[in-house]
Simulated assay, not measured.
Amino acid sequence: MKSIFSYISLTLWLLFGLYFGLAGILYADLTEEKEFIGGSNQVKKEVQLPPGVTKGIDSLGNAYYEMNGVKFTSLEKIKLRGQEEAAESVFNWYKTLPNKLILFITSMALGGLGSLISLVKKLALENARIDDLRTFWHPMLGALIGIIVLGISYLIPIIITTESEVEIRATTLIFLSMFAGMYSKEFLAFLESRFSNYLKQHGKNE
């Protein structure tokens, strides 16, 4: 009976991590591509227009591209919009959520998935018995560690810089959460040692 619960727990955590993790990865990739397109000054070469796309000139003499009645300033933005629509067709929930909440959910999902990887490693390479593994609490710890990684990502730049607004690189955060979840024991030990040293030094200064 315990084995059945363990397998169910592993499967549910796997589905949670893959679904929300993949959504977050797509979100991060589209966000970074959108920023790149917005800040790119590269000279565009003339290319063949995709089917259904027409090119025109507005009243100010600026070129635009039109598809399905919507005008875009570049072909790259049309391509990006197509990718966004494809992602939204599978993950239609994330377009309604604030960006920070998407990062929160994704950090949890990838942290849990990282812990799940460490459990599967024990099963596959260390001949561990599934009944001896904490198949619910270990991924739960990984998910919570993902939240810690997100918090640290906001906290450290504020401490070491004077910037009031912190912009997090989503792709880096996502995979940091997964690696921290994989090595949750070592990650927590590292944090505890750092905070312990900080508190000791802070106490001496006072």
Rank of each mutant, 00 (worst) to 15 (best):
L150H: 07
H138V: 14
S184K: 11
S89G: 08
L123F: 10
K121W: 09
A109Q: 02
T106Y: 06
H138M: 08
L150A: 07
T172G: 09
S89W: 06
G146K: 05
A170N: 07
K121R: 12
E88N: 15
I102P: 00
M108Q: 10
N127S: 15
L144E: 06
L101P: 04
P139H: 05
T96K: 15
L141S: 13
A87I: 12
A86D: 10
A170E: 14
I145N: 03
F136R: 11
T171L: 10
L173Y: 06
A128H: 08
L125E: 03
P157C: 07
A86I: 12
L116M: 12
I158G: 00
P98E: 07
G82E: 13
L110S: 07
I168C: 07
P139I: 09
Y183Q: 07
I145H: 05
S115K: 03
G142V: 01
T162Y: 00
L103Y: 03
A143E: 03
L110W: 13
T171S: 12
M178F: 06
L110H: 01
I174D: 00
Y183D: 00
L150G: 04
I130G: 04
N92V: 06
A180C: 13
S177F: 07
G146M: 01
S164W: 10
M108T: 03
L173Q: 10
A86T: 12
G142K: 01
P139Q: 04
L173N: 06
G114D: 03
F91C: 04
P139R: 03
W93C: 02
S107H: 08
L141K: 13
D131L: 02
P98W: 08
T161I: 09
I159R: 10
I117E: 00
T135G: 00
L176C: 10
S89A: 15
L125F: 15
R169L: 05
N99T: 14
T161P: 02
S115L: 05
A180M: 06
I105G: 01
R134P: 10
V149W: 00
S115G: 14
L176I: 04
L97K: 08
L144Y: 09
G142I: 06
V90Q: 09
P98I: 02
E84Y: 15
E163Q: 14
S177M: 06
G181S: 07
S177L: 07
Q83K: 15
I160W: 12
G142T: 06
T161L: 09
G142H: 04
I105T: 01
K79M: 10
T135D: 01
A86E: 09
K77F: 13
I147D: 02
A180L: 05
Y94T: 07
G181H: 03
L119V: 04
S107V: 04
L101N: 08
K121P: 02
A86K: 13
I102A: 02
E88M: 08
A170H: 11
S107L: 03
K95D: 09
L119F: 07
L110Q: 05
S115R: 02
L119H: 03
I148T: 10
G181A: 07
S164N: 13
A87S: 14
R169E: 11
S107N: 08
I102N: 09
T96S: 15
T162I: 04
L123W: 13
R134E: 13
Y94G: 06
L144V: 12
R129N: 15
L141Q: 12
W137D: 13
T171H: 04
I152Y: 14
L176A: 12
I168Q: 04
K95T: 11
T162K: 14
L173W: 04
H138T: 15
